[in-house]
Amino acid sequence: MPLVLVPTPIGNLQDITLRALEVLKGCDVVACEDTRRTLKLLNHYGIKKPLMSLHEHNEVMRLGRMREMLSEGLLVALVSDAGTPGISDPGEIVVRMAIDEGFPVDVLPGPSAAITALVMSGLGTRRFTFEGFLEGRRSFKEARLRALKDREETLVFYASPHQA
């Protein structure tokens, strides 16, 4: 598989799967949201691989390089800082490009902050909607919340610690 999305621990570095470690050890390059955080994880497990930053500010600019690496048959492991890449983290654009251009894509199972929070909340888990981060100005956020207020299923939102 040329592109493999590898979920990483949300908190404890030991919360990584054996398969994720196997892919990280066997890949040619690790595309990561923050090279410093990923290096900490790799160092913890004695893994040495070339790192390429791929975050929300450069994901579109990196598409050409990702395309080149996949065309060369390199195994690219894509990780985010914590959890599953592409879920409110970089990766969605790269995955779309890879699928559109016929490159194989694999996604490993692993941590997801939304699922962890949902189960831990004690709220209903049979039906839920993941809304991610509410985008835009306060008025847009309030309008979205008003549109959702009568929903019966559990709603899951992400909230940035940097925003009030």
Rank of each mutant, 00 (worst) to 15 (best):
T129A: 07
S88I: 11
L75K: 14
K25S: 10
L123G: 06
V105M: 04
R62E: 13
L74H: 08
V76F: 03
L123R: 11
L118W: 02
H55C: 06
P50I: 04
V119A: 15
R36H: 03
E142F: 01
A164C: 00
P109G: 00
K25M: 05
R65A: 12
K40D: 11
F130A: 01
A114I: 07
P9R: 08
N12A: 10
L5P: 01
D15I: 10
M120E: 10
F130L: 05
R36N: 04
Q14R: 12
G64W: 08
F133M: 10
T84K: 01
V23C: 15
F133N: 02
N58H: 15
S112C: 14
R137Y: 09
L5W: 01
V4N: 11
H55D: 06
L51E: 04
R146Y: 00
R96F: 05
G86K: 11
D106L: 10
E33P: 13
H162K: 07
P109R: 03
T35D: 08
E152Y: 06
V30P: 00
I115H: 03
K40M: 10
L123E: 11
R151S: 05
C27E: 01
T38L: 07
V95E: 08
T125D: 03
T35C: 09
V107L: 14
A20R: 01
V76E: 07
R65T: 13
L41K: 00
D15Y: 06
R62T: 09
V95K: 13
E131H: 10
K25W: 00
K149C: 05
R65F: 12
